[in-house]
C-alpha cells in the first residue's frame, strides 16, 4: 500500500470512528424527545402525582430539583469563587498551594456516591440535619466546588495582567484591584462555570440518595429541614421500583430532567460565546 493510500485509509477510519462517537449522542437526544414528548403537557408539569404516581404530574420532583439546584448555588458559589481568587491572585508557589491544588484535583475525582456517603455521615447524622434539603444542598454544593473553582480560576487568569498593573499603579490596593478590575471581567467566565456545575448537580442521583431524596411525599417541602422529591431520584424510582409504571411517564420524566440539565449546559456555553464576541480587550 502506498503512502497516499495509507493516508486516505487513515482519514476514512478516523472519520468513521468520529461518526461512531457523535452519532449516538444525537440519537440519544432525538430518541428521548420522540419517546417522551407525548407525555408532556401542562398537567404533567404542574400537578401532584396521583394513583401511586401512575397518573397526574411530576411537579413536586421538578420543584425539588429546582430548590436543590438553588441551594447548591448558595452553598458552592461564595466559597468556590473566593477559593479561585486565592489560587489566581494570592497563591504563591509553595506547599500550601500545591496541597490545595491536589485537594481540588481529588475532589473532582471522588465518586458521586462517596459524596453521598459523606453527606449521610456528616450532615444527616453527625450535624443532625436529618434527611433534608439542607443536607442535600450541602452535599451537592461541595461536590460542585471543583468545577466552579477551576473554571473561575481560568476566567480570572484570562483577565490581562496589565489591568492589574495599571490599577495598582493608580494607587489601588490588591483587593480593590481584584474587586474593580479583575472580577467584573472574569464574571461571565465564572458564571459559565457556575451554571455548568449546577447542571451537573441538577442531574445527580447518587449524592441525594441518602441525604434528601424522598420516594414520595404528599406535600411540598416547607423548610430546609424537610425531605423533597427530586427528578433524578424520581426517574430511578419509577423506572425500577414501581411495577406497572406506564412507560410514557418514565420517558416524560427523563425528558424533563434532560431538558433542565441541557438548558443549563447550553446557557453556560451561550454566556461564554456571547461574551467572547462582545469584549473589547
Amino acid at each position: 500500500m502506498s503512502r497516499q493510500q495509507t493516508q486516505r485509509l487513515a482519514v476514512i477510519l478516523i472519520t468513521a470512528v468520529a461518526v461512531l462517537v457523535f452519532i449516538p449522542v444525537l440519537l440519544v437526544i432525538f430518541y428521548l424527545i420522540a419517546s417522551g414528548i407525548g407525555a408532556i403537557n401542562w398537567e404533567f408539569l404542574t400537578a401532584m402525582p396521583r394513583n401511586g404516581m401512575k397518573e397526574g404530574g411530576i411537579m413536586p420532583a421538578i420543584l425539588g430539583t429546582l430548590i436543590l439546584t438553588f441551594g447548591t448555588a448558595i452553598v458552592s458559589m461564595p466559597v468556590s469563587i473566593l477559593a479561585a481568587i486565592y489560587l489566581a491572585e494570592y497563591a504563591k508557589d509553595n506547599r500550601l498551594t500545591r496541597t490545595i491544588r491536589m485537594a481540588i484535583v481529588n475532589l473532582a475525582g471522588i465518586p458521586s456516591i462517596v459524596y453521598g456517603l459523606f453527606g449521610l455521615g456528616a450532615f444527616v447524622l453527625a450535624a443532625g440535619f436529618g434527611t433534608s434539603i439542607l443536607a442535600g444542598a450541602l452535599t451537592l454544593g461541595i461536590m460542585t466546588m471543583p468545577v466552579v473553582i477551576s473554571t473561575a480560576e481560568e476566567a480570572i487568569n484570562a483577565v490581562p495582567q496589565q489591568f492589574r498593573t495599571v490599577s495598582q499603579s493608580l494607587g489601588a490596593t490588591k483587593w480593590q484591584t481584584i474587586r474593580h478590575q479583575v472580577l467584573p471581567h472574569a464574571l461571565p467566565g465564572i458564571l459559565t462555570g457556575m451554571i455548568l456545575g449546577l447542571s451537573r448537580a441538577a442531574g445527580e442521583t447518587a449524592p441525594i440518595l441518602f441525604t434528601v431524596a424522598a420516594f414520595y411525599v404528599p406535600t411540598l417541602p416547607s423548610s430546609v429541614f424537610d425531605q423533597t422529591m427530586a427528578l433524578p431520584y424520581h426517574l430511578y424510582v419509577i423506572s425500577t421500583q414501581v411495577p406497572g409504571m406506564p412507560l410514557s411517564i418514565q420517558y416524560g420524566t427523563a425528558l424533563v430532567l434532560l431538558m433542565i440539565t441541557l438548558t443549563l449546559t447550553l446557557l453556560a456555553t451561550g454566556v461564554r460565546t456571547s461574551v467572547r464576541r462582545r469584549r473589547d480587550w
Binding site: 461564595p78 466559597v79 473566593l82 481568587i85 490545595i100 459523606f118 456528616a122 466546588m145 490588591k174
Partner: peptide, 29 residues
Amino acid sequence: EIVIEALIVLAGASTVIIVALIFIFLLRE
C-alpha cells in the same frame, strides 16, 4: 479588606479541609 482577604485564604484552605473531612467520615463509619 483584611477580613475579605482572610476569607479568601480560608476558602482556599477549605478544599483541603473538605478532602480531609471526607476521608475522616469514611474512616469513622
